[in-house]
Amino acid sequence: MQYQYDDGHSFSFPDLVCGKKEKLLVLGSSGVGKSTLLHLLGGLLNAQKGSIVLGTKDLAQMKHAELDKFRGDHIGIVFQKNHFIASLSVLENLLMAQFFGGKNEDQAKCMNLLERLNIQGKANKSIRTLSEGEKQRVAIARALVNNPSLILADEPTSALDDKNCDEVIHLLEEQANIAEAALVIVTHDTRLKDKVSNQITLV
């Protein structure tokens, strides 16, 4: 798979396979195209060469609107620094993810998810009032809310201390298992090396 930026800078990636309930850790230092790979996998960028097949669909073949819908429906993404819709509460952010993912609003499910992540007490709070660790949990909840078949995590632990790092990686694995989704973590955080066995290193 290959992606070339407008300025001619291009990245080539080896073939990757990740099955249901499987975890894959993509390691690499800054500038080797980790984010590009993640965005390609998430359908946020279109690869010029190669294909990305999720289930039976090839993301590379989809048009804009179709891709948007597919992404909302099947892919959950957790970012290093997570952004939310600032004007909405925690719960409303999850409901909004359901709406844009083309799902019916299901408040019970959202609450259930927040409970699983142990932040149900913050459901009606503004995003602003949350700590970084809490925000990361809400981001995981948001990535999971539409029962995705693929969960992508971009540097999910880099901004966290060791304790939170352990917790977040544990939560991601646990929730991916419950949702029966594939989990791909892209990071330069070497602390994760020992935690996920299935690894690939980009150079």
Partner: peptide, 18 residues
């Protein structure tokens, strides 16, 4: 100021039209 929010809406499955 809200460009991340807008990008996020796209990530969540929102279309350009949205």
């Amino acid at each position: 100021e809200r460009k991340y929010e807008l990008a996020l809406i796209r990530v969540m499955g929102g279309s350009r039209k949205n």
